[in-house]
């Protein structure tokens, strides 16, 4: 880990907060660069190729592109603080309003995926470590290697064909069947929760059948990572003297696992939970395309293809913020969860 943790937990914490602040500022600078500086013709992208020179100049002024770069950056910052992410040419609505719909959909997908990957990955990793070099370990290794190597969008397509088209045991693309769409009043924006709040169990189960496939496909890569890490953490613990001491007291496998090893790797597991959650948000971008899932990923890629930079930049910002916050939380998890770092 970073070398400055030696200066006491408080100093390390302050350092990490500073790091987080710098990262966010850097993210803003990068998105600014991507949105305003890199596109060869940001004005043309908005007004179109057929616009008159007057309209072009007017838009250029409206965008503030006649101003110096620094001033443009300051006004970009000011807009951000006010929650003004600009208009999306694609939908003709403020980007913020679009995000309010898209973000919960992605969050719902990624959250379910992280739950699935944890429920499967942690036990598999533990089983592999406890049965090192047996067939269980080999199978876990193959599962995790393939998970590290599989293109998630392709896996999604294959899954859709097999489970939806052939076996017909999973719902198809989208969040619910077409005739259920728009029937649930949006409260949280997450359809599983909203349908329950509205007492619509039929819609809830329909939504479950739709989300389970993309969530599982998305979960696979994260599960591969979690399995691998859990196995490594556990093997490291199995070599420790306290495990021998626990066995010398007469504790059996199950007790050593539940009462001795798990408490020792909890913090590490929380850390990889946060890291894989961030990774899932990214993976969701391509998975959403395959499953026509109306989340950030789909919104972002549609915007990418028509060069709607406001929307692209906003999505990069939101996913980047989530990603960084999760990394930040995973780093400071040590300070709160590990008794060794308390009271010194």
């Amino acid at each position: 880990m970073s070398s400055d943790t030696l200066g006491g937990p408080a100093r390390a914490f302050a350092g990490r907060v500073l790091q987080f602040a710098i990262s966010i500022f850097a993210l803003i600078a990068v998105t600014f660069t991507i949105g305003r500086l890199l596109p060869t013709d940001p004005v043309g992208a908005i007004v179109g190729e057929l616009a008159s020179p007057e309209a072009y100049a007017a838009m250029r002024e409206r965008l503030g592109l006649d101003q110096p770069v620094i001033w443009q950056f300051v006004s970009y910052l000011r807009d951000l603080v006010h929650g003004d992410l600009g208009f999306a040419a694609m939908t003709g609505r403020p980007v913020l309003d679009d995000l309010k719909i898209a973000f919960p959909a992605t969050l719902e997908l990624a959250t379910l995926a992280i739950i699935i990957s944890f429920i499967l990955g942690v036990p598999l990793g533990l089983a592999a470590a406890f049965n090192r070099d047996t067939w269980i370990d080999h199978i876990a290794r193959i599962i995790s290697l393939v998970g590290h190597s599989i293109p998630v969008f392709w896996f999604g397509i294959v899954g859709l064909v097999v489970f939806y088209a052939w076996l017909q045991i999973a719902g198809g693309p989208g969040r619910v069947d077409v005739f259920y769409e728009g029937l649930v009043p949006p409260v949280t924006g997450m359809i599983l929760i909203d349908s329950l709040l509205a007492g619509e169990t039929a819609i809830f189960w329909n939504a479950v059948s739709h989300i389970i496939l993309p969530a599982s496909m998305l979960a696979y890569a994260a599960m591969a990572y979690i399995t691998r890490m859990t196995r490594a953490f556990t093997l490291e613990q199995l070599n420790q003297d306290y495990v021998v001491a626990a066995r010398a007291k007469g504790a059996g496998q199950a007790r050593i696992l539940m009462h001795h090893i798990l408490p020792n790797i909890t913090v590490q597991l929380v850390t990889i939970l946060a890291i894989s959650y961030g990774g899932l948000l990214e993976g969701a971008v391509v998975t959403e395309i395959v499953f026509s899932w109306p989340g950030l990923g789909q919104y972002m890629t549609s915007a990418l293809l028509i060069g709607d930079m406001n929307a692209v930049v906003a999505c990069t910002m939101v996913i980047g913020l989530m990603f960084m916050t999760l990394n930040f939380l995973s780093d400071i998890a040590y300070a709160f969860l590990d008794p060794r770092t308390g009271e010194g």
Partner: peptide, 22 residues
Amino acid sequence: QSLRGNRLSLIMQDPRYSLNPV
């Protein structure tokens, strides 16, 4: 397992490692 810690015990070298840290 029913013998260890009961009728047969082992005291190890370094309590910093033989005690579970958490």
